[in-house]
Simulated scan of single mutants.
Amino acid sequence: MPTICASRDKFLGFSSWGEGVLQCCVVCLRNREMRGLQVSLNQTQKVRLERALEKLKVLSASNAKPNACVNVADAIPVNFEDGVLKGHGTTELEGEVVATVCGVVERVNKLVYVRALRARYKPEIGDIIVGRVIEIAPKRWRLEINFRQDAVLMLSSMNLPDGIQRRRTAVDELNMRSIFEENDVICAEVRGFQHDGSLHLQARSQKYGKLDRGQLLTVPPYLVKRRKQHFHHLEQYGIDLILGCNGFIWVGEHTQIKDDMIEDQSSKAEQQHSKPSRNSMSLEEQERTYTPLDIRQNICRIANAVRVLSNLDFSITLEVIMEIYNLSSSLNIDIHQMLGPEFCVLVAEAEAERQSLVKKKR
């Protein structure tokens, strides 16, 4: 069977289920590189996939704004009499403003710049991110967040286990490993950049903190758009879904937020210093630490839906994830079969059909 790149002839940045307007750069598709993900397709699947992607290409080209998408060395129409300011991705050549990257032209008052579609994660204040602890330093944790440098979570920028707002002491610093340790997955919020250039995080709410009993997925950051809500509780499936702006996505069992203020602090201290072993725990206590089978299956199915979207370069939103989840359930497709070539072709065909229906309604 022939082997082709699953990301070939794909379209970057366009909206999927639940989105109203396509945002794609058709011109820059000619210069994109293969991402290296290989999917084996038979001849029929190859033809179906190419047909669906060609249909999406036509739809995206018809919905793209004029002069919005540019390629390298394309001229950007501007009025020099208005005192245009050249921003990122632009330069002046022979009296014209030309693009130096492939992307979408953005205009903010007099500033003209090109927003690259395939770009690395650029933190902004207030971003919800998911990271992994890689080091415990004095009064801080260092996290890997898929950025060009590690992020810092200060001890003073998070809630303590006892829930009391107070000054951090030397005892708190000694007990940092009991809060977070290496390889723990953490959800936090971007606080800002310090004078030394380091990125600082904060976790001053109960919704932030350690994540467990789930899967951590890594996708290209440009597929996760900034929205008002990045925390999603899928109540009927018992799952928490966190779409990190940095491209780290968490899919795990739902955890109830406990009010630590009403708990006895002395009993908490005893639990921190003496953690019970698996053998000493009763059967009821061991059952509480296990994730039920149906929830584990839901976690794996939703995680595979995210992987399919990443493979096809579709924008990752809650709506499109649930559409793929429902599609796989309605067709009785096993969880492991969702990553196969046939299901990827079905998802591309479903998206092409949906986009054509939306265009006809207009």
Rank of each mutant, 00 (worst) to 15 (best):
N79F: 06
A68I: 05
V84P: 00
V70S: 12
E94Q: 14
L85E: 13
G95Y: 08
C69S: 14
G89C: 06
H88Y: 00
L93R: 09
K86H: 02
K86I: 14
A68T: 08
A73E: 13
V84W: 01
G89R: 07
V84C: 02
D74H: 14
L93M: 08
E92G: 00
L85C: 05
P77S: 08
A73G: 07
T91M: 14
D74T: 09
G87Y: 04
E92Q: 07
K86Y: 05
K86N: 01
V78P: 05
T90N: 02
K86S: 10
N63K: 05
T91N: 04
G95Q: 08
F80T: 01
K86W: 03
D74E: 15
T90F: 00
L93S: 01
P77I: 04
G89H: 06
V70R: 15
T91Q: 13
G95D: 07
V70T: 13
N79V: 10
G87H: 05
P77W: 02
V84M: 01
N79G: 12
N71A: 15
L93T: 01
A75H: 08
N71L: 10
E92Y: 04
D74G: 09
A68Y: 02
V78I: 10
G87A: 04
F80R: 00
G83M: 03
I76F: 09
N63G: 06
A75S: 14
N67Y: 09
H88T: 08
K65Q: 11
G95E: 08
V72K: 15
E81K: 12
T90A: 04
A68Q: 11
L93V: 11
P66E: 07
F80E: 05
A75K: 15
K86E: 07
V78E: 01
V78N: 00
K65W: 03
A75D: 11
D82Y: 04
E92A: 06
K65D: 05
G83H: 04
A73V: 08
V78G: 05
V70F: 10
G89D: 06
D82A: 14
L85F: 06
P77C: 06
A64R: 09
A73Q: 15
A73L: 14
V78R: 00
G89E: 06
T91C: 13
K65G: 02
V72C: 05
G95N: 07
H88I: 03
A68F: 06
A64S: 14
N67K: 12
